[in-house]
Amino acid sequence: MMIRFYLDGQLVEVDVKPTDTLLKVLVDKLGLTSVHYGCGEGSCGACMVLVDDKLRYSCLTFAASVNDKKVTTVAGLLSDHELSPLQKKFVENNAAQCGYCTPGMVLVAKALLDKNPSPSDEEIFDALAGNLCRCTGYVPIVKAVKSAARR
């Protein structure tokens, strides 16, 4: 079946099977580098995207369900090739080592701060609990989110 959706601001049309996940379509069919397969069961958050401003594990989302919707990956946070303030904070705090978990971490931080511009430490830990990191370590990531929050 053909579906169409806005991917990081661009309209795309793609032929999908009803059982294809959004992750599969984004990586295998559209060749995106900004979403990653990590677990396939919503445990690690490496495949995170925003669908109409709601966080989604793209491995747990059928591609057909985003028809006519807006899908944003971390690449979509750039404007005019300029990093968003949140992305800049991740850079300043060295909050990425291998980088595989980073897109998911940035997107969850964005979703959190959009709703709650000055979260407590507890709220940051709780929001990020669905995203795993194995090499950067959570300390610089949490520091980046805190520094991006309104104090």
Partner: peptide, 23 residues
């Protein structure tokens, strides 16, 4: 000194190419 990871700008923008996107 604490040096900036040379790949970090690509990491935070999702531009880093891992094997999975090689096709």
């Amino acid at each position: 000194k604490s040096l900036q990871n040379s790949s970090i700008v690509n990491h935070v923008t999702g531009a880093t190419q891992y094997i999975d996107s090689i096709t």
